[in-house]
Amino acid sequence: MLVTVTLLLAPESAFAAIGCTLSNPAQDLKYLFPEMSSYREDLREFPKVKDGAALFKGMRARLGSDLDPIYEIYETPYTVYSVFKGKQKIGVVHGVNVPGKGGVIQVFLSTDPESAAIRGLFFQRLESPAARALRDKDFRAKFEGLTLADFYMHDYYAVVQSANENDKIARIEPPKLDADGRPDYAAALRGIRKNLILLDIFVYGRRFEPFFERARQAAAKGAAPKE
């Protein structure tokens, strides 16, 4: 249960330039990875990576929605935490901000360094009437093991094969929320997806691009879209 609260971004931090970070990374990461011995922070910014402008431009298509002009600009810096036990890399942790109905939703993911699958999902600032439901441990556990490929495949299945058993995203049962809370559930899903896309770009060598391309091609030439 403590896992839900041990991570924190530092939006008002005195370090104005480092962007999306944990307030006390040592403590927070140690909770997630008790066996760890060290961690490394890496600052990632689109303007500083090769073809950064094109990659940022491609975010919209991969995310499936417009980027927010306040929360999601080209210059936004991201901090990737690599967690080590001795020399062995045992985890990757990364956080993003997304706009919710009531304000900021901060979504952190810890992922497997080899498979890129989600190990854990954590909400930090969660200014939302849905905060309690979204922080629920059982709800968060439903995302464990998912990869960005599952989100890309869902795009296709949702339109063409709504009952496909491989559609893991569709099988996630949303928490019971009233009308005020539902937009923040959608925002949280968007934050998870955005986080995975950025990790795919900054850490995992864009290994899930084939799924994005196939989903797009298949949807384009596939069966007539269903509602």
Binding site: G52, A149, G205, R207, A215, Q217
Partner: peptide
């Protein structure tokens, strides 16, 4: 039936995006 049946994610580690 499943257009992703033959799609896989390459697992080679390494820097995703070489810095400029």
């Amino acid at each position: 039936a499943d257009p992703f049946a033959d799609v896989s994610a390459p697992r080679e580690p390494g820097p995703a995006v070489p810095a400029a």
